[in-house]
């Protein structure tokens, strides 16, 4: 159950997507997210979904993994859907009760927001699923580098991210272990009302926090013992270098953006299309 959270998890496979330069992938993921807000029509979302599907196919990451990542944010999606469904102002009212009203615009809005959220999560988890945490943070550090001039601690941010990502699976494993250990002592996490359920989390959270602090301390000690002192004069083992395939992917991304923007413009100019 706890292993269902795939955010930040890497899925090892041999695919063109895995081999792409991390810097490019971060930018592409960012552009993809932006594009989701440019697209405004059902046809647009269908196009984006199909394209995303193709990219997932190329990446060789089982689709199951993407869906699993969604499970953990299901509540947010449902919440968004409900809010949009009942609170969107609109002309064509279908049903009304006090402040709640169901409108055609509301349904349209709810569907749109949900599709957006789902695509957003799948798109960004594709980034982490196909990029090792190390590559990811290296890429991020590189991209943040120019901001150093205005005092952004790029290296430190990247290092913190590396550590945070590195510890997600560790802490998940730890949580799993603690849950099992407390279950072995007869703990029950599934029954009871909200209050009892919240209370039943204490035997998990306390040991988890203690172990997280312990790990943090040990890691800090280990880093210091090996003379880690941050950014200055550090060299890299893997120097990032753009390849031909990265340039090809860039062309594809540019093409994708053109289509998305084109669709938006087309809709604006010829609204009768939809």
């Amino acid at each position: 159950m706890i292993r269902d959270i795939t955010i930040g998890q890497y899925y090892p496979a041999e695919s063109p997507i895995h081999r792409l330069d991390a810097r490019f992938k971060i930018i592409a993921a960012f552009l993809f997210i932006v594009s989701l807000f440019i697209v405004d029509t059902i046809i647009g979302y269908i196009c984006v979904s199909i394209l995303l599907g193709i990219v997932i196919r190329i990446s060789k990451v089982p689709f199951k993994f993407m869906v699993r990542g969604l499970k953990s944010i299901m509540i947010i999606i449902l919440f968004t859907a409900v809010i949009n469904l009942f609170l969107t102002q609109g002309e064509q009212v279908i049903w009304q009760f006090g402040v709640l009203h169901l409108t055609v615009e509301g349904i349209y809005m709810a569907v749109k927001m949900c599709v957006r959220l789902v695509l957003l999560i799948i798109g960004s988890s594709l980034l982490t699923l196909t990029t090792t945490p190390i590559q990811l943070t290296d890429g991020l550090e590189y991209l943040l580098h120019p901001l150093k001039k205005i005092g952004v601690p790029a290296h430190e941010i990247a290092m913190m991210m590396t550590i945070a990502l590195r510890f997600i699976p560790t802490l998940l494993d730890e949580t799993d272990k603690i849950i099992k250990a407390q279950q072995a002592r007869g703990a029950d996490f599934d029954t009871g009302n909200m209050m009892q359920k919240a209370k039943s989390m204490i035997p998990i959270l306390v040991p988890l926090f203690i172990s997280a602090f312990r790990r943090a301390e040990e890691l800090a000690m280990a880093m210091e013992a090996r003379c880690y002192h941050g950014d200055e004069n550090r060299t890299r083992m893997n120097v990032m270098c753009m390849q031909r395939r990265d340039y090809q992917a860039m062309v594809w991304t540019a093409l994708y953006l053109c289509i998305v923007v084109g669709l938006r413009v087309a809709v604006n100019f010829f609204p009768q299309m939809i």
Partner: peptide, 15 residues
Amino acid sequence: RRRIGLAFQYPEYQL
């Protein structure tokens, strides 16, 4: 689970 008691590795981490 009552009849079969299981003490995990490093059980002190569950205190």
